[in-house]
Design a binder for these strands. Sequence first.
DNA 1: CGGGTCTGAC
Length: 629
Amino acid sequence: MLCGLLPMCAPNPHLLQLLQSLNLSITTKSLLLTQQSHAQTYRLGLAHHSILATKLISAYSLCKLPSHSLLIFHSANPKNAFLCNALINAYVDNRRYPDALTLFSQMGTQYHVSPDHYTMSALLKLAGELRDLVMGKYVHSWIAKTGFGSDSILMNSLMSMYCKCGSGRGFGDVRKVFDEMPQRTLSSWNVLISAYVVYGGSGFSGDVREIVERMRIEGVGLDGYTVSILLPLCPAPSDGRRWDFGREIHCYVLRRNVGLGTTDVHVCCCLIDMYSRAKNAVAAMNVFDGMSSRNVVAWTCLIAGCVRNGLSEKALMLFQRMQVVDGIESNAVSLISVLPACSSLCSLMDGKQIHAFAIRKEFSDEVSLKNALIDMYAKCGSLDCAWKVFDEDQHVRDSITWSSMIAAYGLHGDGDEAIYLFDKMLKLGIEPDNITIVGVLSACCRSGFLIEGINIYNSLAMDFGISPTPEICSCVVDLLGRSGQLDKALEFIDAMPFDPGANVWGALLDASIIHGNSEMQDLAHKFLTHLEPENPSNYISLSNVLASSGKWDAVIDIRSTMKDRGMNKLPGCSWISINSEMHSFYVADKNHPFSPQIYEVLDNLFLIIKESFPCFDNFDEGSLLGSCG
DNA sequence: CGGGTCTGAC
């Protein structure tokens, strides 16, 4: 008997080795390692081993293969709570919620296993995902009955559930659990702060600051999670230039080696993103350069940051380096992030290359990527390609896809197609949002469709339940203004439910310039320079108008005001790439070798425009050139 | 030497 017992008690070297290899599979989420370990269990005759099976269920779940987890579950007998809980979690993590529920209900009846507090933790996660407050409260009462209220992790799960299921009064429940917990961990504080972020509106508000201050008083330090929750709140809009919480948190990270300083990819990504939003591209770059290892998210953070700050060439260069230097493949999100760089450089070739990569990687079912491609093609001048992307797979479309294509037609001056598509979208029962409306209204503006535009605007509340946004209102002002109804545009501005922003006055200024209304010009200019005293474009546009009508005294006034305030307007520039050669043009530029021929075509185009659009009658060539500045 | 909470790019 002794001989038979000994091998059971002594640690089995094969078992230990397999456990280590499985732990590695789990930390690296490697399918290959998981499969190798799985094969080993058969070779060593350990396929029924409960501990190995539990680990394998988790490992396959992390590789997004919950069906494989189920096979493992079936191969292990008898069932116990470890196996059941691991499989329920595998289902929840892979969004197979009905399967998770079924297994829970079968635990007692079919497998004769009693649910324990780990099961309840899994159920809380499930309730949170399903926003099922009834299920969540069921677990809460189970905890109260069984006396597991001192299990901090379970209580953290409970808070997290209330946060997700809350709908309005959720925060009160989160707070109550937190206040009544006998023992808190740092994670408890982290859940509390994320709940404040969910319910407390935007920014580094007073409530959040209060919690962080309380953590300081109670001697609870921040960890990588805390920092990742707080950084997206910085810089808060209310911070202004008074205080820089983002930088303060960065200093804390460096001082206290949070997440081991610059090795925590999560923390670094949040820092890069924070600095990018604070318009500090240099600081973002420094964080990136200091990272010991980078993944696709880190690269994408930096690329998106460059795009956000107008560094499009840099964004494209980084995109290339990510793949060539670090050997990291881009995913759908990184492609979506880099596409606007192609748009702002009008680089159709770069955009097409990214599109080709997406096709090779079979990302074609990612609707957000499709939307980004439509937008890119439209902005790079290829309406045809935009349409092809829109048209190809009719199942992969959401309301943004429609909005993007409508905006694309608007951008290219085809108001008819834009309105046709808008109607088609409505007929298919797809709900427009305020972005869709801006797209279709600006299409109306560009094509001079006053009646159609106003009709859409008037039907917003009734037909779509959309209330006007500042952007929508500025479209209406543009619409009325361009068609010469300047007084109505002004009336509309007075009746708007919020203070008109710079884009509203800008639209009115453009319209009054087109229609030669100097009174309205002055009014719009006055408000515009009041709202944006530092924007040189606002002065230039008026100065150009005054110059074209020979009012040189007024021009000198404006120019000297600009000089006093140290304003410099970079001259506007257009460019086009023909046979890989870049041709660029400034206003009234005559430096191009083919300048005479180019102006001849321009003159002819101008005549055609004048004949086709009578509203351009008040427009002479001088003011056309002038307003291009 | 098994299963559970909180974090990132569009």
